[in-house]
Design a protein around this nucleic acid. Structure first.
Lengths: 183, 183
DNA sequence: GCGCGTCTATCTACCGGAAGATAGAGTAAA
DNA sequence: TTTACTCTATCTTCCGGTAGATAGACGCGC
């Protein structure tokens, strides 16, 4: 919406992806933006509302970039490469793990609606892959492979962030592409 | 050491694995144990000290169970199965993700010594797999495959916890075993 | 065996600060 | 004059952490 709202979401997303939901405060975000914490509450009455907005925007951006990259691609190998590229972009572009990777780990400690939104993000990821997978396998197999791909990439982000080494993500991504790309 | 110390570590591990480091407080742990928060500080002066003790104990238990399961096994396929089983046990036994998976996600928001201990846990995981891998590949390839395995399992735990469905972990684990077990 | 000091484990009481959240006034543009 | 936005000021609750007291168990020299 407004410019300040965008800046607020940017600051909140950066902070949550770096340190987690519970480690981020309204005061800290306000300081980042040069406003007061009461003004942050003007945009989002509760922290939970901010979290939900964050996930909604993240998901929208994620699939927008994904569909841009994957437009016109028909082979699964290419779709997977696009999927991996969007994940990689998220990690390398900001030196942070996926928003939903962070929130997914914290899931049990989040307000239930927020945990549900995060779970929906993952299901949407899996659906996206599933739909582009060759139909030579039964549906359950396809979904299982999609689960594996999402888990690998989320785990790879976490590992690369913890070890402070993006190259680890790339190694895992290449292995993933080699394994599933030729299906 | 003492009985109370064990109970304290048990409560702290359960809480951190469920909701994350920053969402756990001394008072909450004290309430769980029926003591006062000042008594928790008697055992661990700072929260960081508690976190370090938690990781040290977790890592020791993890490798103890791993070595028990893998004792006498020589083929990589079997070692991998043991590795997966210990991960699965951690998830299913407590309905929680790996302590270091949680702390790894939060890594950038943790006291540096704690983040370093978590990173060391992952490196030890990778080393364990690496050493048991057939030497037909160059060292770099082996380490890359070990990275992939750890990332998959950590991601699978997070995904299963977020989606509240342990079967998703099993699906991914089976795919992993099929992928690397026959190497 | 007795008294002395020490150690262990817990308590009460408190500190300064930060958290999420609210009420209501001010301000500036449309 | 209304709307959009930001402020000051404040509340309650919780945080990590500290100080200092206490009660009981242990060991040691006399």
């Amino acid at each position: 919406m407004t410019e300040m709202n965008d800046k607020l979401l940017d600051a909140a997303e950066a902070a949550v992806r770096l340190r987690g939901y519970h480690a981020v405060s309204f005061r800290e975000l306000a300081d980042d933006l040069g406003i007061k914490s009461a003004s942050v509450h003007y945009y989002y009455r509760q922290k939970e509302d901010l979290g939900l907005a964050l996930v909604a925007r993240y998901q929208a951006h994620f699939f927008k970039r994904l569909d841009e990259r994957a437009a016109g691609l028909s082979r699964f190998e290419e779709a997977l490469a696009a999927f991996i590229a969007v994940y990689r972009e998220a990690l390398v572009g900001s030196d942070r793990i996926c928003l939903c990777g962070m929130l997914g780990a914290e899931s049990s400690g989040l307000p239930p609606p927020l945990a549900a939104a995060v779970a929906a993000f993952f299901e949407a990821n899996i659906d996206w892959l599933d739909k582009r997978m060759p139909e030579i396998w039964p549906s359950a197999t396809r979904r299982g492979l999609a689960d594996s791909i999402v888990a690998s990439l989320q785990g790879a982000m976490m590992l690369a962030a913890s070890l402070k080494d993006h190259a680890r993500f790339d190694t895992i991504a290449e292995e993933l592409q080699a394994r599933f790309g030729t299906l």
